[in-house]
């Protein structure tokens, strides 16, 4: 029994990784007032570019770097369309999703063609901590991208609550006119958060293809980016609550995988459905909390308009 719990928990921690990167990135963007529904597409591009680099060079660090650059380029594009060109964010986001999904599929067929695996980031036991009973195995024998994802929670909390940049981000998402009247550069802040979000989505994708699953195939993410967006609402734009949501979701997922691997007689269609069902149920239950999205979410900024 203990082994089962350790197995499921350890796997839940691992599975939370891509969600954490993507959700924290999306949180930054949304807090500054930009809704990006293209997360999944950027994740796929990050996953593909990291995987391809590692497949060709065997260099994991380089693979991660390429995913970061690809994520940043997508972030820049998304910021340009949403912030500078003031596009309807919900629609442009779906466009970026389809674009990223399509491009990664095409590149995969042309440049790789069939399913390969790579050697991803190996487990990196943390001295002393990894020898602790129970928690040692669950928490401290993971790979570096998993640690990074969890480190992101306090880091982003600190950025948002303790720094002038964080204050600017929150103000820009609530009342950009007010921030503008005090000399805050709305466009620069939003470019910053959206590009940061793109980078984190790229890393989220890379964490799948070169750290957790170590494969790439078409539509590898299977809608994870959309779950990440849902987790931002679930977490009410607070990093710590986003972590809770990601863990809830990844735990259900880990149980679901365990059930399948064990060959327990539940139709796999049903178990696969579980994480998504839980998301919908929880989000519906939370709708009563009356936590409001940032007031300027999804609203392009134009100086002089009220």
């Amino acid at each position: 029994m203990e082994a089962i719990i350790i197995g499921i928990t350890k796997s839940a921690i691992r599975l939370a990784t891509p969600y954490l990167y993507a959700s924290i990135g999306e949180t930054l963007g949304q807090l500054s007032g930009v809704l990006n529904l293209g997360v999944d597409g950027v994740m796929l591009m990050g996953a593909f570019s990291a995987f391809y680099t590692v497949l060709k060079t065997g260099n994991l660090g380089l693979g991660l770097l390429v995913a970061i650059v690809v994520g940043a380029i997508f972030g820049l594009l998304i910021a340009f369309v949403n912030v500078t060109l003031k596009a309807e964010q919900g629609i442009s986001g779906i466009g970026f999703y389809i674009f990223g999904q399509g491009l990664s599929s095409v590149l995969f067929s042309v440049m790789i063609g069939s399913v390969h695996t790579v050697n991803g980031f190996p487990p990196l036991p943390i001295p002393w901590f990894s020898d602790l009973p129970l928690v040692g195995e669950i928490l401290f024998q993971q790979n570096i991208l998993v640690y990074g994802a969890f480190a992101l929670i306090p880091l982003s909390w600190f950025l948002l609550t303790k720094t002038p940049l964080g204050l600017n981000i929150r103000a820009v998402g609530q009342n950009p006119q007010a921030a503008d009247s005090l000399g805050v550069n709305i466009v620069r802040i939003r470019y910053f958060t959206v590009i940061a979000g793109g980078i984190l989505s790229g890393i989220a994708g890379a964490s799948l293809s070169i750290a957790l699953l170590n494969v790439f195939q078409q539509n590898l993410t299977n809608g994870m980016g959309f779950i990440a967006v849902a987790l931002v609402y679930f977490g009410a734009w607070r990093p710590l609550s986003v972590l809770n949501g990601a863990l809830l979701f990844s735990t259900v997922n880990a149980i679901q995988i365990w059930v399948q691997v064990k060959g327990i007689n539940i139709p796999p269609d049903f178990t696969l459905m579980m994480p998504y069902l839980v998301t919908i149920v929880v989000l519906t239950a939370m709708a009563k909390r009356r936590v409001r999205p940032p007031a300027a979410l999804n609203k392009p900024f134009q100086r002089g308009e009220e």
Partner: peptide, 21 residues
Amino acid sequence: HQHFMLVPTLTVAENVALGLP
């Protein structure tokens, strides 16, 4: 301004500090 330029979710001090080094 006629329509206040304040961020309602922030504190008074945060509103004042906004945009300043």
